[in-house]
Amino acid sequence: MDFKGSDTIPGPRAEDQLPHTAQSAAKIVIVGGFGVGKTTMVGSVSEITPLTTEETMTQAGIGVDDNFGSASKTATTVAMDFGRISITEQLVLYLFGTPGQQRFWFLWNGLFEGALGAVVLVDTRRLEVSFDVMGRLEERGVPFVVAVNAFPDAPRYAIEELRTALDLTPDIPIMECDARRRASSRDVLMTLMRFLHSLAMTGSRT
């Protein structure tokens, strides 16, 4: 049904449709620099086939998109990734992966509206990309946790070393993860939830 040349546009598969019992939705945004694995993370935890507006990187991106350290990367997210997790019959959690490239920052405006919090995904080979992203979140007052995506060929650092390198305050959780693994990505989301919960308890940093 969904091959090229078909006239009908395929809608969601039956099992991907939002249950009618769903009444409310919460939103989490996954951000990070270029090529840190946001798409992978949304895909590994989403219960629906994640929707992605990822396109093959073209000649036009050469020299514009800095893909240092990910030379084999041939596709990048031009708009966003979208995934969903049903928490209860009434409550769904939406995951949005958003592009790290600076020229897509205009998308952030709508995306962070009403978001509970954010996950900043970091690649140790290109830490500097994360600074801008974290700065923007702080400006907006969006609470976030930092997840270091452990690429197999990336250098490993002690978490505390990374905390210093990223100039994170001690209250912001930072952890290692493997965005390809569902359990690992789920743990990242759990960490964010616990962090938000502790913020709600203390009432600080709203």
């Binding site: 049903s86 928490i87 509970l116 938000l196 709203t206």
Partner: peptide
Amino acid sequence: APIVRKARTDRSLLEAVMNGLQRL
């Protein structure tokens, strides 16, 4: 209308999300 982030996020909502994630 979506759930909006309030000055203080609703704790029961966060707890519900945590419980849901644990079951994944």
